[in-house]
Design a binder for these strands. Structure first.
Lengths: 343, 343
DNA sequence: TTGTATGCGTTATCAG
DNA sequence: CTGATAACGCATACAA
C-alpha cells in the first residue's frame, strides 16, 4: 500500500488531522510542527490521495471535455489539437486535469456525460461545439451543473457562459477584405448549416455585400459538410459559369475545406490567386503549408480553449458567477491566396 | 446532495449493502429484491458515485495519457488525434475513461505523472512516445505501476509492454518499393535522431539498399526535427547536385515533413513525381490532400492507440500478465508521388 | 439470501 | 495551536 496521512502522522508524532492541516497550509499550525510534518512527508515520500480528497471535498479538480457526436471527424480537424492545447493550459494554471468523454454515437456521449456528472468524476464540463437542440445542454442546465460552451449557444445565450468569436463580424471582415481588393463576384463556401458558426459567417458575408451595394446571389452560396471533398460539384458548377459571371473570389469557412477546394480548382486548371482569390478561416497550421499559403481569418483557437477552461474553473469555484459571453478577437492573416482583381 | 445508495436502500426497504450488491449484480441476491432495488434506483434517478467507488475499490477506471515534453508540437501532428481516437475506443470498450497529463515543460509533465500515479487518479498510463533515457519510464518501472508505451522502448524492451510497428521492415519496404520502380539514387529525410523510430526506419532503408547492391551514401541522409520547415537547406543542397548525381527519389519519414519538402521542391521548380519521386510515412489525412497526393506507408495509427489501451487494461486487471510486444502491421498506400524512374 | 460493521484516505467540526 | 471523531459514498468480510 502507499503511504497515507496516518503514516506521516505517526512518524511526526502528531494527529492525522494535523497533517491534513499542514497540507492545506493552515495558518493556525505552528511553523515548528509544519516543519516537522513536512520532514516526515519528505522522508516517507508521501503524496496526497486525490480520490480520498475528492470524496471528502466533493470536488475532483477535473474538467470533462465533451466532443461532438462525430468525434472522428472532429478529431481530424486541426481545430481540435489547438483548442485542446488552450484548454490544457488554462486548466493547468489552476491545477485542474482534463478528462475526455468517450463514445462513438451521440447516445454514447450523452451517457458518458451523465456518468461523469452524476458519478462525480468532474467538477465541470466544457462543450467543444455548439449544436442545435442539444440534449446535453438541457441536461446540464436542468441539474444546474457548471459548464461552458465553445461557440455560440443555439438559444438562451444569456444563461450559458460561452466563449466565442464574433463570427458575424469575422465573416464581414473577410468579405470586406476581398471587396477592398476590388472583388465583386464573391462566392461563399460554408460548412454544415446546422452549425451556428456557418450561419453567422454567412450573415456577415451578406452584411458586407449589402454595405458595398453588391447584390446577394443565392447561386453564389454553397453549403457542404466540413469535409475535405467539400463541395467539389458545387465548385465545378461555379467555375463552369461564363467568365463574366464567374466568381473572382471565394470565401471558405474552414481551412480543411479550403484544401479540398484548392485541389478541385487545381484539377480544373485554375490557379490561385491568379485566376481566383480565396480567403479562408481558422488559420490552422495547414493554411500556411498549402500552396499557395492561404490568407485566413485567425480566430485564435488556442485562446478559445484557454478562456473556456479559465471561465469554467471560475464558475466551479464561485457558483454564483453571472453567466457571460467571452468574445475572442480575430484577425486576418494575409498570405498569398488573395490578390487584387484584374480588370 | 445527490442520491446515494442509502436513499435507495430506504426506498427499497433493504440494507445499503444489498443495494451495492445489486449494482455489482451479485448472483447471491434474489431476482425479486434485485427488481425491487432497481425500481427504487430508477425512481430516485440513482447514479453510482465513482469517486466513492474508486476509494473503496482502489481503482478508478481511468487511464492517464502522457504526451512528450513538446506537447505543442506533438498535438499539431495529425498523428495525435488519430492515436487518441484509437485509445478512446479501446478504453471505451472496457468502460475506462481517458485523462490527460497536462504540462508545458518536461518537468511539469513528470510531476503531473507523479501526481496522477501517487494520487491514485489513474489505474495505468499510456506513454504516447518513446524517448531515449526517460525519467518517467524509470519512475513507473520502479513503482511497478502499469503502463504501456506506444513505440519501441529505448531499452529493456522485454520488460515493457509496448505497441509498435516494425519500423525497420517499414523502412525496408518503402525503400524497396522505390527500388522496384527503378530508383537507385534514393535519399533519406528523417526526423529527430533521438527518436527510436527514426533510427529504425533508417536501418530498414540501409538494409534495402544493401540487398539491392546499392551503396549507402552519407550525403543522402538528412536528419531534421519533425517540423514543417524540415530540412529546407538540406533539400536545396541535394537538389543542387549535378543531375547525374541528384537523387531521383526521396524517402521522408513523416507526412508533415513531407508537406514541407513538397513546398521546398516547388520553390525549386521541381515537380513530383516527374522530376523526383517521394514516399512518405504515416498516411495521415493530409497525405491524401496534398498535391500530388502522397504515396505513404500507412502505419495504422488508430490501431496503435486501440491496442495500447486494450493492453494497458489487460495489465491493470491482471497484474501478472507477461510483458509483450504488439506489432501493428503497415502497408504502402500508393498514390501519385511515386513514378518509375525515367531512363 | 440479506444485514451489520468496518475500512478506503481525506477533510472538517468540535472540543480542549 | 492541536487532537478526537464523524462524515464523504461505497464495497466487503463476517454474521445471521
Amino acid at each position: 500500500m502507499s503511504v497515507t496521512i496516518k503514516d506521516v502522522a505517526k512518524v511526526a508524532n502528531v494527529a492525522p488531522s494535523t497533517v491534513s492541516r499542514v497540507i492545506a497550509n493552515n495558518p493556525r499550525i505552528s511553523e515548528q510542527t509544519k516543519v516537522k510534518v513536512r520532514e516526515a512527508m519528505e522522508q516517507l515520500g508521501y503524496h496526497p490521495n486525490f480520490i480520498a480528497r475528492s470524496l471528502a471535498n466533493q470536488s475532483t479538480q477535473v474538467i470533462g471535455l465533451v466532443t461532438p457526436g462525430s468525434s472522428d471527424v472532429f478529431f481530424q480537424n486541426p481545430f481540435f489539437p489547438t483548442v485542446l492545447r488552450g484548454l490544457n493550459e488554462g486548466a493547468h494554471e489552476h491545477q485542474y486535469a482534463l478528462q475526455l468523454v468517450t463514445g462513438k454515437s451521440e447516445d454514447d456521449i450523452y451517457n458518458g456525460v451523465v456518468q461523469m456528472v452524476q458519478g462525480g468524476r468532474v467538477d465541470g464540463v466544457v462543450l467543444l461545439y455548439s449544436k442545435v437542440e442539444d440534449r446535453i445542454v438541457t441536461y446540464l442546465q436542468d441539474r444546474d451543473f457548471p459548464f461552458v460552451m465553445i461557440g455560440k449557444p443555439y438559444k438562451l445565450a444569456e444563461s450559458i457562459t460561452h466563449v466565442d468569436n464574433d463570427n458575424v463580424q469575422a465573416g464581414f471582415d473577410a468579405t470586406e477584405f476581398l471587396i477592398g481588393m476590388g472583388h465583386e463576384r464573391i462566392a461563399y463556401i460554408g460548412g454544415d448549416k446546422q452549425l451556428v458558426v456557418t450561419v453567422e459567417r454567412l450573415q456577415g458575408y451578406k452584411n458586407a455585400l449589402e454595405k458595398a451595394g453588391i447584390p446577394y446571389r443565392d447561386s453564389y452560396t454553397v453549403h457542404e459538410s466540413f469535409l475535405l471533398e467539400g463541395g467539389k460539384d458545387a465548385i465545378c458548377a461555379l467555375m463552369d459559369l461564363p467568365v463574366s459571371d464567374r466568381p473572382t473570389a471565394l470565401l471558405v469557412t474552414d481551412d480543411l475545406m479550403s484544401l479540398g477546394v484548392l485541389n478541385t480548382l487545381s484539377e480544373l486548371d485554375m490557379t490561385v490567386p491568379e485566376d481566383i482569390s480565396m480567403i479562408s478561416f481558422n488559420n490552422v497550421l495547414f493554411s500556411e503549408m498549402s500552396r499557395p499559403p492561404l490568407t485566413s481569418v485567425d480566430i485564435n483557437i488556442f485562446q478559445l480553449g484557454f478562456e473556456a477552461s479559465a471561465q469554467l474553473i471560475k464558475r466551479v469555484e464561485h457558483k454564483s458567477e453571472p453567466h457571460r459571453r467571452i468574445t475572442v478577437p480575430h484577425h486576418i492573416v494575409k498570405r498569398f491566396s488573395t490578390e487584387y482583381v484584374k480588370k
